[in-house]
Write a protein that binds this DNA or RNA. Structure first.
Lengths: 201, 201
DNA sequence: CTCATAAGCTACGGATCCGTATCTAACTGG
DNA sequence: CCAGTTAGATACGGATCCGTAGCTTATGAG
């Protein structure tokens, strides 16, 4: 484990560098202990700073967390590239699973699954982090091909646009690991494309 | 809120009655405070008993929780009744959403979503609660119709058998409420049946 | 009716987190 | 290079939960 810069000597972080370290520590702490155990004390310990530094900026761990997510959020958006619906759908799901491997994703999922317990937190996450962006992942691709005429727009019901994401989440939960590329292809071929009106073989 | 039996006087619970009260309190406590905050103190408070009573039977809140789930678990199993795949699938999903309204379901979901944090708990839940039962809900129905010849068994891939449950979970998460009957029908018509090889219209 | 069992109470020392206050010393802008 | 800012360290009283101990008393089996 390499230390940053010089191994010893008082090297004091300030401003953005400190902020980023705190944000990172918050997400890591959340991933490890969970939303219910997230504490200023824990975040400060992990960020190797003092509680006072945190309380100068935030009143609660939740406020801190929202900032951390806001900062970490720029997520890659699928850009339908090929003129191939199937390939683009698989690519969109791959983007999703890539994102799900990040610390920020764990944090977002934790907030979502415990939203009935911390409603203000979920609301803050929506209004400050998600709302700025449109629909996610597969729906971006689906709208593109619907506009291009490849797809009957009437097929794009609220249910159908969720099939890909829903199965990725379910598989991740069941298998306790991210889906493989083969499984993503299976999701597209066996579930998504049939629902879009392209029966297999 | 009516008190049980006589309003006053020392009426001391024993044996099964006490046990059931504790199990119930554990699930309620979990639903309210979350897995990370589940404590003997909290369960005892909610069950209106003393911590000592709990420690006489269990060493940790997690052990107590597994017992509570074990006791609460007998879940209704879909019995394909009509000779109508569509109707039976909708009925199976209805059973699922009914179950999801129970306290036990909240507990199970909490354990599953935090399984990386408490692996022993998830494992205990599998070996002591789930394993005794076969596949759940839609897969029961699907196997029935595959055996009856209505359905091509090759369609029943690991992905396809998860579509219904996956969408119910996703919708519940997104909408922050259980799916309506209409939404269940939409899941069957727009996602499940097409994937099983029955294109719409 | 008697008596063993177990529920229910109270209290404890230890640990952790809370939120705040106080002081120091390292940075940095001017 | 000096002064203002702010990171960092320490300590605090209060709160909560931990796990255990000692005791009282309701309950049910014989």
């Amino acid at each position: 484990m390499a230390e940053e810069t010089s191994p010893r000597g008082p090297e004091r972080r300030r401003g953005d560098a400190l902020l980023r370290a705190i944000h990172e520590a918050a997400l890591a702490e959340l991933a490890e202990v969970g939303l219910g155990q997230l504490s200023m004390e824990g975040i400060a310990r992990r960020a190797a700073t003092a509680k006072t530094v945190l309380y100068r900026r935030w009143s609660t761990p939740h406020e801190l967390l929202v900032d951390a997510l806001h900062q970490a959020h720029p997520v890659e958006v699928p850009t339908p590239s090929a003129d191939d619906l199937r390939t683009d759908l698989v690519a969109a799901l791959k983007l999703l699973t890539d994102w799900m491997g990040t610390p920020a994703a764990g944090a977002v999922l934790a907030v979502m699954t415990e939203r009935h317990r911390y409603p203000e937190l979920a609301e803050a996450l929506y209004s400050r982090v998600f709302d700025p962006r449109g629909g996610t992942f597969t729906s971006t691709v689906l709208r593109h091909y619907a506009n291009a005429g490849t797809l009957d727009p009437r097929r794009l019901t609220p249910i159908v646009t969720q099939i890909g994401e829903a199965l990725v989440f379910k598989l991740t939960l069941d298998l306790n690991r991210l889906p493989t590329d083969e499984e993503l292809v299976a999701i597209v071929d066996e579930a998504l494309l049939p629902a879009l009106g392209f029966p297999l073989g």
